[in-house]
Design a protein around this nucleic acid. Structure first.
Lengths: 151, 151
DNA sequence: TCTAAACCCAGTAAGTTGGTAGGAATATTG
DNA sequence: CAATATTCCTACCAACTTACTGGGTTTAGA
């Protein structure tokens, strides 16, 4: 399992926000209940998301969390990077360049890691939160109220 | 860092075998020295590779390891799977099907994990050890003797 | 003022990582 | 047969990570 619960819970929670935080902020208690996740653990997840500027918090009663940007402007890669740290496969293959590897000249595997990383980034940073819920709508799995429906 | 040293050391060692184990077995001591890896740690890596049927061991003096199959018949995916265990991103996305997820019906992220896993597997299981050294030859980085050269 | 929420920090049990150490079994060479 | 070089096996370890739990503080709406 390459992605920890932090990343998986966080991504599910962000998708949850897309669906349910259109009109007003959603409190963690509700997300935790709906997604079956410990609320105090989710706190730590959202602390990271907030620090990364992906969600805005509204404190006090009737508060909660909302997306900081429209769903189609937040990529899955941004979310996972905020929660899991840099998504590198090896030191020699990470977004934006190469770092510290004394064997760069002779390493037989570096080009492979870089190629794989590029492929992964291609998916991660081209898929947005909107894509997640759109796919869901297309297959007709979703349960909650239609967030796009006029009220 | 999604791939641990076991996977990275192992892949580098397998590439090393492609280059240097054409005529006779290569002892761990030599690989460890050439790749700058602890020999006793490499032992554990090669125990896994042997159990996965990817290398054959020759015991005793003048022994060592050789590839169990030609380099173009061993994929990077096989090597990493033997060393890292199943390369799944989440429970709901692993090679050959879906397992235990009580939220399958409503999970917004499952299709994404499956799509990403498929992309990764595409690279992992279409790249062979031979491809690693071929790329190396193309860019002219390699140092050792040409294993394809007639003797 | 009551209450519901975000926020913050500390701790923790279990598992993983990246090794080290010591020795037993096996095969080759002299 | 003896010496040597190798694989093979098991146990151990310290540091780190994971997936939480708990206790309290601050903030804002009714």
């Amino acid at each position: 399992m390459l992605i920890s619960t932090k990343g998986r819970y966080g991504l599910r929670s962000m998708a949850d926000l897309v669906l349910y935080a259109q009109k007003k902020p959603v409190p963690l208690r509700v997300i935790a209940e709906r997604q079956g996740i410990s609320e105090s653990y989710l706190e730590q997840v959202f602390a990271l998301l907030r620090k990364a500027g992906l969600v805005n918090a509204i404190r006090g009663s009737y508060g909660g969390y909302v997306l900081a940007r429209p769903a189609h402007q937040i990529t899955v890669g941004e979310v996972l990077q905020a929660l899991e740290g840099p998504l590198t496969l090896a030191n020699c293959a990470h977004r934006g360049g190469t770092i510290e590897c004394d064997k760069m000249d002779t390493c037989l595997t570096m080009p492979f890691w870089q190629k794989l990383s590029a492929k992964i980034d291609e998916v991660l940073f081209s898929t947005t939160l909107q894509d997640l819920v759109d796919e869901e709508r297309a297959t007709g799995k979703r349960q909650g109220p239609d967030p796009q429906a006029p009220i």
